[in-house]
């Protein structure tokens, strides 16, 4: 590339055109979801396919609510409960353990930390079948305990909080707390936790999205009687795959909360992901 073409590329609309095309590809399926969710069934079968939204959303979503096979509202409520509980727990346990690994001295610290890092590399599906058996034995099948308790802690969460705590909290600050006679928990509560807040927020957002979106495990241990949102969506689409407008109305409603979370907190989420990438 010669000088002239470099300058052209740097300032030219070509770069923006490439990016705008990428953005269109990223966003179009969202728009398409809205188009189908607001169309009546016979309009979907048109050739060419519809490209603009219409006014049938109410009717389509009404069919979702009337559908006993999917229990959509139960699924929505269950997903809110499970995601909230898992998020709070992952953030708290991650902060506690991350603080301990970053700032406290104890026997076996490095070995235990290494265990956590190795854990992150192990594919989760390895334990799937025995875990299913355990859930049966515990009597948790088709209850929210089955999709909550195993996920209350996360190796990634501990590691992320530890990485952040190392640089965000100075040893002097903790020493000062000790000199003042504060207990370890007081130091955690009054000094460490406020300093960890930015990382805790990102971890919380990522955990919430992951829990909200998880499918394989809830599908394995829940039934359509008591589903999470994703399980409900999937059963709806398996049973009513010809009724696209109904399935898409449900899918759109299930996607909206995450899109809102992302529009409000997108900056932090992206910042957190990019920072995490450089550090690890």
């Amino acid at each position: 590339m010669n000088k002239a073409s470099q300058r052209l590329w740097r300032t030219s609309p070509l770069l923006y055109i490439a990016l705008v095309v990428a953005v269109l590809f990223s966003v179009y399926p969202f728009y398409y979801m809205v188009v189908i969710a607001t169309r009546s069934l016979d309009q979907i079968n048109d050739v060419p396919p519809p490209f603009t939204p219409a006014g049938e959303f109410g009717a389509n979503f009404g069919r979702v609510l009337d559908n006993d096979a999917a229990n959509f509202l139960t699924g929505l409520l269950n997903s809110v409960i499970v995601s909230a509980v898992v998020t709070v727990s992952v953030v708290i346990t991650g902060s506690l353990a991350g603080f301990a690994f970053a700032k406290l001295r104890f026997r076996g610290r490095n070995a235990l930390l290494l265990t956590i890092i190795v854990t992150m590399m192990i594919p989760t599906q390895l334990g799937l079948i025995p875990l299913w058996g355990m859930i049966q034995d515990l009597g948790w099948y088709d209850t929210l305990l089955a999709v909550t308790v195993p996920f209350l802690v996360s190796a990634f969460g501990v590691f992320m909080m530890r990485q952040y705590a190392i640089q965000a909290i100075s040893d002097e600050l903790i020493e000062a707390g000790r000199v003042d006679g504060a207990s370890t928990f007081r130091i955690f509560w009054n000094i460490v936790l406020p300093a960890l807040r930015p990382a805790a927020a990102v971890l919380g957002l990522l955990t919430f999205m992951e829990t909200w979106n998880s499918y394989l495990w809830p599908y394995a241990v829940l039934t359509p009687e008591n589903p999470t949102l994703q399980v409900s969506l999937a059963f709806l689409s398996y049973a009513y795959y010809t009724d696209y407008s109904q399935v898409f109305a449900a899918t759109a409603i299930g996607t909206v909360p995450l899109v809102i979370v992302f529009i409000v907190f997108g900056r932090q989420i992206i910042g957190g992901i990019m920072e995490g990438a450089v550090k690890s």
């Binding site: 953005v23 990223s26 399926p29 979106n213 499918y215 994703q230 969506l233 795959y241 898409f248 992302f262």
Partner: peptide, 21 residues
């Protein structure tokens, strides 16, 4: 943000939408 947005959608929803596409 726009390029990252697809990652926010659940896999089940993505599969439903793409199944239709």
């Amino acid at each position: 943000m726009a390029i990252f947005m697809p990652n926010v959608v659940s896999v089940a929803a993505v599969a439903i939408v793409f199944g239709m596409l």
